[in-house]
């Protein structure tokens, strides 16, 4: 009997404490972002989808078409093509496509690139209605950006 009464009282007290905690939080500022109006800033190392880095002087992609990224990709979502450059030295990138529907954002391609020609974009609002839209033409994107 005594235990029961004790339990009722301590239980009621614990419930009152719980309600006090929630009511205190009612007056604290919210912690969530108001999404469409505000959005989070991505840290420098954020792994978004990849994009081509351009040489700041020439404005051309730094890529030398060594195919290392294509080989490193576990999902096989990168395909690129190049042709001999006019000056005769090295290759020039002619096509770079990323199949985002396959990409798992692991970042191995960026790690494999010895020429810093690939980097992560900070874009994270990526949603598509058609499958074809998932295939990015990175060369075009790099030129548009410039």
């Amino acid at each position: 009997m005594r235990n029961t009464i004790q339990e009722i009282i301590s239980g009621a007290y614990s419930l009152a404490v719980g309600m006090k905690i929630t009511i205190c939080n009612l007056f604290r500022p919210t912690v969530t972002l108001h999404y469409p109006h505000e959005s989070a800033t991505m840290p420098a190392r954020f792994r978004g989808h990849v994009e081509l880095a351009c040489d700041p002087e020439t404005g051309k992609p730094k890529c030398v078409v060594c195919m290392a990224c294509q080989r490193a990709c576990p999902s096989g979502c990168i395909s690129l093509d190049g042709q001999k450059s006019e000056s005769g030295k090295g290759k020039v990138l002619t096509a770079y496509s990323l199949d985002f529907s396959l990409c798992s954002l692991c970042g191995l391609c960026v790690e494999s690139c010895k020429f810093d020609a690939l980097r992560f974009s900070k874009q994270y609002n990526l949603a598509f209605t058609r499958r074809e839209e998932c295939t990015f033409n990175l060369l075009e994107r790099a030129q548009v950006k410039k």
């Binding site: 929630t22 939080n25 009612l26 919210t30 912690v31 969530t32 108001h34």
Partner: peptide
């Protein structure tokens, strides 16, 4: 609204 503010969210806005 109340549940949102109890939980430090915004609720419908």
């Amino acid at each position: 609204k109340g549940s949102a503010r109890f939980q430090l969210r915004h609720g419908p806005t």
